[in-house]
Write a protein that binds this DNA or RNA. Structure first.
Lengths: 103, 103
DNA sequence: CGTGTAAGGAATTCTGACACG
DNA sequence: CGTGTAAGGAATTCTGACACG
């Protein structure tokens, strides 16, 4: 787990391009606790993962519907649990089927 | 195909941290045609993918063995064909097993 | 509450070149 | 051939604040 999708390596400018959100919005959603990018050593600039980008796109949808950030934060947290359970199940099936399968 | 692994979104500074290679080396290997990052609109700064990072790590190994860049370029090209064939095979098997499997 | 913007500073990246070898 | 470095400039990102609402 924690493969490319979760590596924090993307700068805020690229995230803005990919999501269509302004820098201001992206930083604000972080301030409200909806996502947690990492920071680089020197300049302390933010680094995001592809997962963060997916989260931002969900946030954008919700915001368009008028949902407030506090509400969105709750939704986001509730999504985590079932997702984890499902992932474990799928991984189990894959392991069973491909026990000796090397790439 | 062309998922997160191949998206060109990582700046050269991060690539340097991840691979341990100097900026100079990373740019030089590009100049020699070993990899092809994309460029951003305004500043024209380089953007790399995780695949590019893997390529750079292979290059680093080869260079330590004293292999020249021209030689490495050839090796890299020969790797592409069998890789593609193998990927298609694996994908075929997965499709057969998980035909109706939705996540 | 959510978002825009101007402000000043710091860190990043770019290119072409000179150096050594 | 492969890599380091100093040089000057351009683009990026950061924070705190004021604005509107």
């Amino acid at each position: 787990m924690a493969s490319y999708k979760d590596k924090k390596v993307i700068s805020i400018g690229i995230v803005s391009e990919l999501t269509g959100l302004s820098l201001r919005k992206i930083r604000y959603y972080e301030e409200r606790g909806l996502l947690t990018p990492e920071r680089t050593g020197k300049g302390g600039s933010r680094r995001y993962s592809f997962s963060d980008i997916e989260i931002l796109m969900k946030i954008a949808e919700k915001r368009e519907e008028g949902v407030q950030t506090a509400e969105i934060r709750k939704d986001l947290n509730e999504e985590k649990k079932p997702q984890l359970a499902r992932k474990r199940m799928i991984q189990g099936q894959l392991n069973a089927h491909f026990k000796n399968f090397k790439t």
